[in-house]
Lab assay of single mutants.
Amino acid sequence: FSITQFVRNLGLEHLMDIFEREQITLRVLVEMGHKELKEIGINAYGHREKLIKGVERLI
């Protein structure tokens, strides 16, 4: 299971460039909250919320 699959499953594949540029893996994403996601350029609250909720389902 990769970050690419995870992001695609959430319908947020347009954010993949950010994850690749910042070298974010699923392991790193698990540790990130709204503040960190915003810092790397994910400005939409809804997108950040989707990512965080998606990660919570993985754990």
Results as ranks from 00 to 15, higher is better:
residue 1 F to E: 11
residue 2 S to V: 08
residue 3 I to P: 03
residue 4 T to V: 13
residue 4 T to C: 14
residue 4 T to Q: 14
residue 4 T to P: 07
residue 5 Q to D: 15
residue 5 Q to G: 08
residue 5 Q to I: 10
residue 5 Q to A: 11
residue 5 Q to C: 15
residue 6 F to T: 01
residue 6 F to S: 00
residue 6 F to Q: 00
residue 6 F to N: 00
residue 7 V to Y: 02
residue 7 V to W: 02
residue 7 V to N: 00
residue 8 R to V: 13
residue 8 R to K: 15
residue 9 N to Y: 14
residue 9 N to S: 14
residue 9 N to F: 11
residue 10 L to Q: 04
residue 10 L to K: 00
residue 10 L to F: 02
residue 10 L to S: 02
residue 11 G to L: 03
residue 11 G to R: 07
residue 12 L to Q: 01
residue 12 L to P: 01
residue 13 E to F: 11
residue 13 E to Q: 11
residue 13 E to L: 10
residue 14 H to E: 13
residue 14 H to P: 07
residue 15 L to V: 06
residue 16 M to Y: 05
residue 16 M to W: 07
residue 17 D to T: 11
residue 17 D to S: 14
residue 19 F to E: 00
residue 19 F to P: 01
residue 20 E to Q: 11
residue 21 R to Y: 06
residue 21 R to K: 11
residue 22 E to C: 11
residue 22 E to S: 11
residue 23 Q to D: 09
residue 25 T to V: 05
residue 25 T to I: 04
residue 25 T to N: 09
residue 26 L to T: 03
residue 28 V to H: 15
residue 28 V to S: 10
residue 28 V to Q: 14
residue 28 V to A: 13
residue 29 L to C: 03
residue 29 L to D: 01
residue 30 V to A: 13
residue 30 V to Y: 09
residue 30 V to M: 15
residue 30 V to N: 06
residue 31 E to Y: 13
residue 31 E to K: 15
residue 31 E to C: 14
residue 31 E to S: 15
residue 32 M to D: 00
residue 32 M to H: 01
residue 32 M to V: 03
residue 32 M to T: 01
residue 32 M to W: 07
residue 34 H to N: 04
residue 34 H to V: 03
residue 35 K to Y: 07
residue 35 K to N: 09
residue 36 E to A: 09
residue 37 L to A: 01
residue 37 L to N: 01
residue 38 K to P: 00
residue 39 E to R: 11
residue 39 E to A: 14
residue 39 E to Y: 07
residue 40 I to W: 04
residue 41 G to R: 03
residue 41 G to N: 03
residue 41 G to A: 04
residue 42 I to Y: 00
residue 43 N to D: 13
residue 43 N to K: 14
residue 44 A to P: 07
residue 44 A to N: 15
residue 44 A to T: 11
residue 46 G to W: 13
residue 46 G to K: 14
residue 46 G to Q: 15
residue 48 R to V: 06
residue 48 R to Q: 06
residue 48 R to H: 03
residue 49 E to Y: 08
residue 49 E to D: 09
residue 49 E to P: 03
residue 49 E to G: 03
residue 50 K to G: 05
residue 50 K to W: 07
residue 50 K to T: 12
residue 50 K to P: 01
residue 50 K to R: 13
residue 51 L to I: 15
residue 51 L to C: 05
residue 52 I to Q: 02
residue 54 G to A: 13
residue 55 V to F: 08
residue 55 V to P: 01
residue 56 E to Y: 08
residue 56 E to M: 11
residue 56 E to W: 07
residue 57 R to F: 10
residue 57 R to Y: 09
residue 57 R to D: 12
residue 58 L to W: 13
residue 59 I to F: 13
residue 59 I to G: 08
